[in-house]
């Protein structure tokens, strides 16, 4: 069972994601509604995986990703993206994100990607 932090400014998306994650037997240890909170939670909780939405207020997912990688270059970060954000996703991967999931979520894919990253 892995400890996961999720960050998305939409409560609905967080709940959706949380359900998928918990069904697969992992624990959501923290929820952030913006990038800054995600970075703070990362520092505080040292989770196994962080799932970051790209577009968020205060600090976006890209910025948060940079900060998290600065804190721990081996951090496992999964980006969460809508269609049409391929360029950002590519940038994120180059910055050190380990993978990505696309909205609308397909539970099977989300789990597969999470497992892949956790085992890598």
């Amino acid at each position: 069972m892995a400890r996961i932090v999720i960050a998305d400014d939409s409560q609905f998306m967080r709940t959706l994601l949380k359900n998928i994650i918990e069904k697969a037997g992992h624990e959501v240890v923290g929820e952030a509604s913006n990038g800054q909170e995600a970075v703070d939670l990362f520092k505080k909780l040292n989770p196994d995986l962080v799932i970051l939405d790209i577009v968020m207020p205060v600090m976006d997912g890209m910025e948060a990703l940079k900060k998290i990688i600065e804190i721990n270059p081996n951090a496992k970060v999964l980006m969460c993206t809508g269609l049409g954000q391929q360029k950002l996703v590519i940038q994120a991967i180059e910055l050190g994100a380990k993978g990505y999931i696309v909205k609308p979520f397909q539970a099977e894919f989300v789990i597969k990607e999470i497992e892949r990253i956790l085992s890598g």
């Binding site: 269609l83 391929q86 590519i90």
Partner: peptide, 14 residues
């Protein structure tokens, strides 16, 4: 798959 390029990049990175 929605983001082919990103997927390819992930594969290469892996």
């Amino acid at each position: 798959e929605a983001l082919i390029a990103a997927k390819m990049l992930i594969i290469l990175k892996q």
